[in-house]
């Protein structure tokens, strides 16, 4: 979203313009949904529910938005927190138990390579979620939220260099985590 457009949009939202809110949804919900799909490991239903919940919270906190960061960054932060809350509530993300998994027939038996790739992606996702908080948000916002380093720095109220250091450290940790899992 262009900064000029975003400023106009925020002014319209502040005046209570409903159409401005609908425009905001149209321009951002795909990105929010995509980040949540990555965070949830490809669970589109959960991601859709979390996207809906993210916007509920956004409407509620809109009057307190201080414009320290872009709207998309702010929305990603809400989505990220919503996801973390959801994984603390096991009701929303119920793992498929073993019997259920066996009962589901694989539609394409030749896609072993794809399964292995998904397995690696899942391990990577778990490793990201297992990182300590500053690293976890930074790397998820950079790669899953597709936010710029400077934008994350503004959101975190640190310098861009600090965010780069965090990214380097987080990548190193993830590498170690994937290597241990491989052993």
């Amino acid at each position: 979203m262009e900064p000029t457009n975003e400023r106009h949009l925020l002014e319209a939202l502040a005046s209570g313009d409903r159409r401005a809110a609908e425009r905001l949804v149209d321009e951002t919900y795909r990105q929010v949904f995509a980040s949540l799909v990555r965070l949830t490991g490809g669970d589109t239903e959960a991601a859709a529910d979390l996207t809906q919940e993210t916007y509920r919270k956004a409407w509620k906190s809109l009057p307190s938005f201080r414009r320290r960061s872009q709207l998309t960054t702010w929305l990603y932060r809400i989505a990220y927190n919503t996801f973390l809350n959801s994984i603390r509530r096991p009701v929303l993300l119920q793992p498929i138990d073993e019997q259920q998994a066996v009962a589901i027939e694989d539609p394409d038996p030749d896609q072993a390579a794809k399964l292995q790739q998904r397995d690696v992606a899942e391990r990577l996702r778990r490793a990201v979620i297992g990182l300590p908080e500053p690293l976890r948000f930074t790397i998820s916002a950079r790669f899953w939220g597709e936010l710029a380093v400077e934008e994350i720095a503004r959101q975190e109220q640190v310098t861009g260099a600090a965010i780069r250091k965090r990214l380097k450290l987080a990548t190193s940790r993830l590498r170690e985590a994937l290597g241990e899992d491989a052993i």
């Binding site: 209570g16 409903r18 609908e22 919900y29 990555r38 490809g42 859709a48 809906q52 992606a121």
Partner: peptide
């Protein structure tokens, strides 16, 4: 690996569901 995640299309009614929950008084 972090970026190679395939992103499916969001549900068709997701935008409508979100818009239906926009409050009357946004402020």
């Amino acid at each position: 690996l972090l970026t190679e995640v395939e992103i499916p299309e969001p549900p068709a009614d997701l935008a409508a569901r979100i818009k239906s929950e926009i409050p009357a008084d946004l402020s």
